[in-house]
Write a protein that binds this DNA or RNA. Structure first.
Lengths: 122, 122
DNA sequence: CAAATGAATTTACAGGCGTAATCTTTGAGC
DNA sequence: GCTCAAAGATTACGCCTGTAAATTCATTTG
């Protein structure tokens, strides 16, 4: 089962640092999203039933940690978009942003470095 | 109002070729998606209320055409993903696919060409 | 003109999602 | 041991989405 966007906010917290108690997750996620504590609890439960996270007892509370790996989530999500919009390939996406003049100087420099790196590796 | 994924399938048909009658859109989209004609009709109506397409009478039927531009849709959708997962930038996405060894030879060649092109333009 | 046909509009309905309030359980303190 | 408070689990609810059936409206044909 895929995780939703709101759920991914919780995941990002746990990917950054885990295991964490619900309290800490609330502290990390709720203010920026303008969520109530109850909302975070709901999302934690949905993530549990989706097996995207696990909880282990720690005294009276639980500590939560990711089961789903960020790289896997990022990959699945990105690939889906590439498939839908760019014929499944990365280059057309870059071309699109290039055409729209939406590549920062930093992006261009980093892309150049990446290409060189790839070339060197072979 | 953002258009949904199912709706975007209809949009793709119209971006490829328009204006089209509902019948043609059904013919182009329904089989691959395994949709009934009624489903396509629903999606057309939702796109109309979202102002993503327009319809003009042509005798007894309507011809539909996009109002939303593909480049705008693609851009909004892609930017959203980049913002959520890659700090809003293109390069980290490319880096991710590179790390996962998910860049095709073709991709690499095209990326190299793109970078050169950008460099030449300045 | 009436009936049939084809096209469009309306209605339907379950499941997921965002957002939360409420209820229940369990450990902590008196 | 009993009560209270905190944490977790359950329930809620409206909206969007995917999927489609039913209904209405306009046209063509007999």
């Amino acid at each position: 089962m895929p995780i939703s966007e709101a759920e991914s906010v919780i995941m990002e917290v746990l990917w950054r640092n885990s295991p964490l108690a619900a309290e800490d997750i609330v502290a990390a996620a709720a203010p920026a999203q303008d969520w109530q504590e109850a909302t975070v609890k709901t999302l934690l439960n949905r993530l549990l039933t989706k097996k995207a996270i696990a909880a282990e007892r720690d005294g009276r509370r639980y500590l939560y940690r990711p089961l789903l790996k960020r790289a896997d989530y990022v990959h699945a999500t990105s690939k889906r978009l590439l498939d839908r919009l760019f014929d499944g390939r990365v280059a057309p996406l870059v071309a699109h942003f290039s055409e729209q003049r939406k590549l920062s100087r930093k992006d261009i420099a980093e892309l150049r470095r990446l290409i060189e790196e790839i070339d060197d590796a072979r």
